Simulated scan of single mutants.
Amino acid sequence: MGFYQPTSVTNLPAAGGDVIIGVIDSGIWPELPSFDDRGYGPPPAKWKGVCNGGTNFTCNNGFPSSKIIGARHYSGTGSARDLQGHGSHTASTAAGSVVKDASFYGVARGIARGGVPWARIATYSVCGLTCSSADVLAAFDDAIADGVDVITISIGRRSAVDLDRDTIAIGGFHATKRGILTVHSAGNGGPDPATTASVAPWLLSVAASTIDRKFESKVVLGNGKIFTVNKHFFAV
């Protein structure tokens, strides 16, 4: 798409390190390469949050390095550590650091990075087996008070509801009033319009697309003949 492609933390735009992204999800797994804090400075001065990750969780918010600068957990989770993977996935998509030689079991090998790889992360773990509406609203309040610049939340209903009953729309409205952008997933049920869960005009949702990647593999038949097959990999 022509975006700037950094190859390491050392050549990231320095100013971007002041961006704080609040991730409201199932928590985060701090040891993943996507959250490597080497090369980062201390948390931005505007940060007012805490590292209250609960059981078996430590932010990498020491000095001089800090990528994950804050963590909170809510009822039913016990820890900000991600035990289902979804929160780590969404956090790395938004702000994962540069990871070289990444692949899916050898397929699509290259550099993995988030949309804003130099940003800091504050995680708000609201989802255990389920996600409580009260916890989601509490996480919005905490993220706003903590001083995040952007909130990303990739959880929600299977279809849209009235805005006055939509927890994420309500929380996002309060964030927007304070100049904080809320990015919300539109849902996975498409493509019918009724399956779009994010309809509030103050929330930003990005449509999913497909990636057409071509891979070459060789097929050996029983008679010893070798054929080269071009395969297309589509990811939605």
Rank of each mutant, 00 (worst) to 15 (best):
G27R: 04
G27W: 00
G27C: 02
G27M: 08
I28R: 04
I28W: 03
I28M: 08
I28P: 05
W29S: 04
W29A: 10
W29Y: 13
P30T: 13
P30D: 10
E31G: 14
E31N: 13
E31I: 10
E31P: 10
L32I: 00
L32D: 09
L32W: 12
P33T: 12
P33K: 06
P33V: 07
S34M: 05
S34V: 00
F35M: 02
F35K: 01
F35E: 01
D36R: 09
D36A: 09
D36F: 02
D36Y: 11
D36G: 08
D37R: 04
D37H: 13
D37L: 01
R38L: 06
G39L: 02
G39C: 03
G39P: 08
G39I: 02
Y40K: 00
Y40I: 02
Y40N: 03
G41H: 02
P42T: 08
P42Q: 09
P42Y: 04
P42V: 10
P42H: 07
P42E: 12
P42M: 06
P43F: 09
P43K: 11
P44T: 03
P44F: 14
A45Y: 09
A45G: 11
A45V: 15
K46W: 15
K46V: 12
W47C: 03
W47H: 06
K48L: 11
K48N: 11
K48H: 13
K48E: 00
G49P: 11
G49L: 12
G49H: 04
G49Y: 14
V50D: 13
C51R: 11
C51D: 06
C51A: 11
N52L: 10
N52F: 10
N52I: 03
N52Q: 13
G53Y: 00
G53P: 01
G53T: 00
G54D: 03
T55R: 07
T55N: 11
T55F: 13
T55M: 09
N56M: 01
N56E: 15
N56V: 04
N56K: 10
N56D: 15
N56F: 01
N56Y: 06
N56S: 14
N56A: 04
F57A: 03
T58V: 13
C59G: 06
C59E: 02
N60Y: 14
N60P: 13
N60G: 10
N60W: 15
N61G: 07
N61P: 08
N61H: 05
